[in-house]
Amino acid sequence: MIIRSELNDEFKSFTDAEAQMLSQQHEMLSEFFKRDGSAEIVDSLNTLVEVFLFTENMENVTPEMRIHIANQLRVVTLITKLGETIVKWKS
Rank of each mutant, 00 (worst) to 15 (best):
Q24D: 12
L48A: 13
I86M: 11
E84R: 15
L78T: 15
N57W: 05
M28N: 14
A70M: 06
N60D: 09
D9G: 11
Q25T: 09
S44L: 12
F14E: 05
R35V: 06
V76G: 15
W89L: 07
I69Y: 00
I79H: 13
E50Q: 13
F54V: 01
N57P: 03
E27K: 14
E27Q: 14
V42C: 12
E56Q: 09
S23W: 05
L73R: 12
E40W: 06
H26A: 12
P63C: 00
T55R: 10
H26T: 15
K90N: 09
E59T: 08
E6P: 03
Q24F: 03
H68Y: 07
S5E: 09
N57Q: 10
L22A: 08
N71C: 01
M65F: 02
V61T: 05
T77W: 13
A17H: 02
E31W: 02
K81M: 15
E40M: 11
N60I: 00
E59G: 04
E56C: 02
M65N: 07
L73W: 01
I67F: 06
Q25R: 13
Q72S: 10
L22K: 09
Q72C: 10
A19G: 04
L7F: 06
S5I: 06
Q24S: 09
L82K: 14
Q20P: 04
S5T: 08
I41N: 07
L53D: 06
I41C: 02
E10V: 12
N46K: 15
L22N: 08
Q25P: 02
